[in-house]
Design a protein around this nucleic acid. Structure first.
Lengths: 133, 133
DNA sequence: TTAAATAGGACTATTTTGGTCTTATTTTAT
DNA sequence: ATAAAATAAGACCAAAATAGTCCTATTTAA
């Protein structure tokens, strides 16, 4: 389980929106506030749309909002929206990816670690994160 | 914290050596037994040498052995020998890698997860792993 | 109808990964 | 001595992933 820069940007973006609920926020504003390249951020927001995390309003005065309450969005959810499922070792996602085809004594450890990490990331929601300073 | 194929190969390799202590094992043998490309494995063994995990004997009848007892080699050690320090998010390794420079409410979470995962990987040693089947 | 915003697809440069290949050097056995 | 079999080390390379940009719609408020 590692977080690409893209996913990191996505997290910042959702965090900013969580701190600015109740209004529509433009890509430009988020980009400036969170130091994310604007056109890249636009792409990232499309992923977050597909995942149902944000909703968009087109046209002038358009922009983005969270599609759910901050407390109902977990870190894990945002990361997976960008990267898909991930783990410390691919074999923990799909046994077939291992040429030892899971007959390996190390395999259960990757599965265990994956579970632990996902648990932790699921616990963290954006209401919590937006409140901290 | 994610494990590249190279590190995964390294783990298999150390595991094989842990199951075959008390003799010198050639790259060729390990390569065949563990399904790792031979010339790539040779490189990997150089890394494990530098890290003091294996020792080599040159010349005909040469090969590799573990440089320490299996119980004193952890999974974490092998992974770091190949990949260097790693974490779910680079900012957990070096705050400066984050453009928000650690003034970010998510940062402590990455640090926490890194600690948890490293703890787990440190607990796992190759005496344990070689015994399982 | 224009300006400012998102939508979406094509494209691209850089870095990382996952190797190979070649040329030493070492050591044992003949 | 020398041939054979092993590691040592460095250069090299291809493919995939990452980290974006750019351009052309389309939408909508003023």
């Amino acid at each position: 389980m590692y977080v690409t820069r893209k996913a990191d940007y996505a997290i910042r973006c959702v965090l900013y929106l969580a701190k600015n609920t109740g209004r529509i926020t433009s890509v430009d504003e988020i980009s400036n506030a969170m130091y994310v390249p604007k056109s890249f951020l636009a792409k990232i927001l499309q992923c977050l749309m597909k995942a149902g995390i944000v909703s968009s309003t087109r046209g002038i005065k358009g922009g983005f909002q969270l599609a759910k309450e901050p407390k109902d969005i977990s870190l894990l959810e945002v990361i997976e929206a960008i990267q898909g499922p991930s783990a410390a070792n691919i074999c923990a996602i799909d046994k077939r990816m291992c040429s030892l085809s899971g007959r390996c004594t190390v395999h259960p450890i990757w599965v265990k670690i994956r579970k632990k990490v996902e648990q932790e990331l699921k616990k963290q929601n954006f209401a919590k994160l937006a409140k901290k300073r």
